[in-house]
Design a protein around this nucleic acid. Structure first.
Length: 186
DNA sequence: CCCTAGATTTACT
DNA sequence: GTAAATCTAGGGC
């Protein structure tokens, strides 16, 4: 197992979003280990990106996007859902993060089924809020360092095939940018 | 298959 | 006050 180093995240946010495809998220809860392969991501940057939470200014919620790369940015939205991002940017930007939108369950599938209350493996973590629920990610994980072996981190995974670029989902601004990336599921 | 409504915190056009 | 980087259940086609 190789944990992705901090330097992996200190590149352009778009590059990191594409590079994260095929990598694995590992979540440890007590003695249980849950993991999944990342299949869909989205890049969010700073002043050049009107759809980003960091577009206007730094706030209590988004401040981790301005902090050290390789950390978790977890936010709560629509009154019910958490979404999980990884802080990533190069030195040209003051803020940036990659939203993890979907994973393929690998280990600990029983735990995910329990967390989600459903058994359909295809639907267990195929959306940003589904994935956080399946992995048990909440605001407790805001700012967690993902480059050290603790309860939540990201490791090397499989080599992705063809990457498909699309407009980002659920936003109204900057929809001309193809910053949603996914790999086809076998 | 497609569409709609409702859940209800956080931040601010 | 209301829109938001969303999901689910339920009804119609």
């Amino acid at each position: 197992m190789t944990i992705l180093p901090r330097t992996f995240y200190s590149r352009d946010t778009i590059t990191v979003a594409k590079s994260l495809l095929g990598k694995k998220i590992v979540r440890k809860i007590g003695k249980h280990e849950i993991s999944g392969i990342i299949t869909e991501t989205e890049a969010y940057r700073h002043k050049d990106d009107s759809a980003s939470h960091a577009f206007r200014k730094i706030t209590e919620r988004n401040k981790v996007m301005f902090g050290e790369v390789g950390k978790a940015y977890v936010y709560f939205t629509y009154g019910m859902h958490y979404c999980f991002n990884v802080v990533a940017r190069n030195s040209k930007f003051e803020a940036g993060a990659v939203l993890i939108r979907a994973i393929i369950p690998e280990k600990g599938i029983e735990i995910m089924e329990k967390n989600r209350g459903i058994k359909d493996r295809k639907k267990i973590a195929d959306g940003p809020a589904k994935l956080t629920q399946a992995l048990g990610i909440t605001k407790e994980h805001y700012g967690v360092d993902l480059t050290v072996d603790s309860k939540l981190f990201i490791i090397e995974g499989v080599k992705p095939g063809k990457i498909i670029a699309s407009p980002r989902i659920g936003i109204k601004n900057a929809t001309d940018r193809l910053w949603n990336f996914k790999i086809s599921i076998k």
